[in-house]
Design a protein around this nucleic acid. Structure first.
Length: 447
RNA sequence: UCCUCGGUAGCUCAAUUGGCAGAGCGACCGGCUGUUAACCGGUUGGUUCCUGGUUCGAGUCCAGGCCGAGGAGCCA
């Protein structure tokens, strides 16, 4: 058997006889000529067989091999501009075919449009198709870029618990589970409070794992289980946080452009908009954003849009507001200085303006909305205690958290980045359920 | 929780005023030497989401329910 190669390395073995191990994605029979489109996990390759070049039994086997059958194909690699595939441009002239398993019966996913519910019921098979394969390859690259950048810039990975004693922020609805004789435990919605403890031991830390929200959100931007990376830094104020974030995000985007070019192109993504994502990012204060939104609203004729954009200083932005704001820029934009009332209890107040918090969200362009949310944290123990009381949070549960401000308190900041929203933006797809291998939504836990 | 839309063949969808339930794709058979979800001919394919009602007659109208999608709120 000729040496086994990966389909994304075909250019390096042009002219050589190789073996490709994979699955039949599509077959086009033209009579005396057959095209097989083969997946091998690394890409999609066209393999071609001419009847006159092969013995009749082999040719007949190639003609008959059903979709999704597992195969070992040997043949000679050649460049051909007509060859489809990911990345494409090379094809294999078949000299041999070994069928590992021949599929019997109908394969559920046809090469045509399907409904969302049907596809999600068959998610275990859906991930084989080019679009889903490409998206999940981008996801893996995003995660690797995140870890590489943080590991290379002085951050220590410190894992935070998934089973937690209570609501971290006391806001969203959590999934609960009975925890032996200790009452209820809750699936983590954030590792942030633990991160804040960890920076006093390690300086700069991050946690990276699944988080859970039991909110009954039914939109293209929500999952009940999603992945979030949360960096946290000691001796870091809000401005330094934004500087770090733009370096970090730019690294992720440029890494994906470099390592997942074929995947992005196969998804039809416009790469020029991603190439622009380099520091610095534009920054707009909440105050100015509210003014801009009022101007946009005044210019709008659509009464429905007018109603959606209505807001006064003090409210939080909804999805329509974020979309309009991001349309003003061709890069991600920082929006900072939200009213304290709409943000979590632990955020540092703006100097001289206690009604404003040192908070910052990063909004992705093209209407993708909030991909990070962060802030400078309160460093004064008395102020923190005051806020905990104002928010009616159980003081006892936060005793350890207040301790952090009593023993060597420093200005510190951090944020959370939603992996799925980032992948959706980079891939240019409109629903985040496609950016996670097995999405969990309010009415789906299968497969 | 609220608003809007939807549920018909394995899949994607049609079905006029309430009047014989259809097409494409898939599968199967045949044809084709450059296909890109190939194309062409043939064969196969039905609990019209459920329950009740109106009617000579219901996929279609009415009531209730179930399931799904999009959006709002909340958030990443």
């Amino acid at each position: 058997m000729p040496p086994v190669i990966r389909s994304n390395q075909l250019a390096q073995v042009d002219g050589q006889e190789v073996t490709l191990q994979g699955w039949i994605y599509n077959r086009t029979h033209k009579g005396k000529l057959v095209f097989l489109l083969v997946r091998d996990g690394y890409g999609f390759v066209q393999c071609v067989a001419f009847q006159r070049d092969l013995d009749p039994e082999l040719f007949e086997a190639i003609v008959r091999v059903p979709q999704e059958s597992s195969v070992r194909i040997s043949g000679v690699v050649r460049a051909d501009k007509r060859a489809p595939g990911i990345p494409g441009g090379y094809e294999i002239g078949i000299t041999g075919l070994e069928i590992v398993q021949s599929v019997e019966g109908e394969y559920p996913i046809a090469l045509k449009e399907h409904g969302v519910d049907f596809l999600l019921d068959h998610r275990h098979l859906w991930i084989r198709v080019p679009s889903q394969w490409a998206i999940l390859r981008v996801r893996a690259t995003v995660i690797k870029a995140i870890r590489d950048w943080l590991d290379g810039n002085g951050f220590t990975l410190v894992d935070t618990p998934i089973l937690t004693p209570a609501a971290c922020e006391g806001t969203t609805t959590l999934f609960g589970t009975k925890y032996f004789d200790e009452g209820m435990a809750y699936l983590a919605q954030s590792g942030q409070l633990y991160n804040e403890a960890d920076i006093f031991a390690f300086g700069k830390v991050y946690c990276f794992g699944p988080t859970f929200r039991a909110e009954k959100s039914k939109t293209r931007r929500h999952l009940t289980e999603f992945w979030m990376v949360e960096p946290e830094m000691a001796f870091c104020d809000l401005d330094q946080l934004m500087e770090m974030e733009e370096q970090f995000i730019s690294h992720i985007v440029q890494t994906v452009l470099r390592d997942c070019r074929a995947e992005l192109l196969s998804l039809g993504r416009d790469l020029t908009v991603l190439e622009k994502v380099v520091p610095p990012f534009p920054r707009i204060s909440y105050d100015d954003a509210v003014k801009k939104l009022a101007e946009i609203r005044d210019r709008t004729d659509d009464p429905e849009q007018k109603a959606l954009l209505t807001m006064e200083w003090g409210g939080d932005f909804g999805s329509p507001h974020e979309t309009e704001l991001t349309k003003l820029y061709d890069k991600p934009v920082f929006c900072y200085g939200y009213p304290s009332a709409v943000k979590a209890f632990y955020m540092e107040p703006w100097p001289g303006r206690p009604e404003v918090s040192k908070s910052v969200d990063l909004l992705a362009p093209e209407g993708y909305g909030e991909i990070t949310g962060g802030s400078e944290r309160i460093s004064d123990p008395d102020l923190l205690l005051e806020r905990i009381r104002q928010h009616d949070l159980p003081e006892d549960a936060f005793r350890w958290y207040i301790d952090l401000r009593r023993y060597g308190s420093v200005p510190h900041s951090g944020f959370g980045l939603g992996v799925e929203r980032t992948v959706a933006w980079l891939c240019g797809i409109d629903h985040i359920r496609e950016t996670i291998p097995y999405p969990r939504t309010i009415n789906r836990v299968y497969p």
